[in-house]
Design a binder for these strands. Structure first.
Lengths: 87, 87
DNA sequence: GAAATTTCTTCCCGAACGGGAAGTTTTCGG
DNA sequence: CCGAAAACTTCCCGTTCGGGAAGAAATTTC
């Protein structure tokens, strides 16, 4: 599975386009690591099991929407929706 | 301004913060109406049942993440994730 | 190299998703 | 206003989520 080589620093403040569960999972994983959180800690933060985080970050498309958004929020990801006609 | 019905217009370029399933549902419903699509048509577009769209737009937090993102995509919503620590 | 963390996998199984279709209510066009 | 279209509800029920835990595997640290 694709992952970043991220031993060192992290480009915080990046702007990622989210088209599917996989991209959201990657974004959450990146943001989590940037904060130095473990999957367990993130799971605790949103009252889920560790397995949920594992599967979410792996891009599981059937993950629960609400918990996924909660996880994104918990790692400081700001999600915005823009109508396409905006250009 | 010519006369128009309340749902004929969609504020172009509006940028909505998505924090939970409810906000995403509202955004999807708005975008769908702006395109003149019915729930049935949207359901067909993403290979789901109508009920899924009804529940998604109603903000059901346990809706499947992948299908929710597919629906957002289908109605032309561009979702972006931005790391919060930048600003 | 070894030990310690962290991540991923597997188990069981109750709880809940959600498809299709029919039926009801709300909304909209003429 | 009235009829049509769209939206929402309800039904049955097979499929699958996902919690907790223990252990394997991978990664990091000394």
């Amino acid at each position: 599975m694709p992952s970043f080589r991220d031993h060192d620093f992290f480009p915080i403040g990046m702007n990622e386009l989210i088209e599917n569960a996989n991209q959201l999972g990657v974004a959450i994983a990146s943001a989590r690591k940037a904060l130095g959180l473990t999957q367990r800690e993130l799971a605790l933060a949103i009252n889920s099991g560790e397995r949920f985080i594992v599967e979410l970050e792996a891009g599981k498309p059937t993950a629960q929407l609400g918990k996924a958004l909660a996880a994104a929020h918990a790692v400081g990801l700001r999600l915005t929706a823009v109508g396409r006609s905006a250009g």
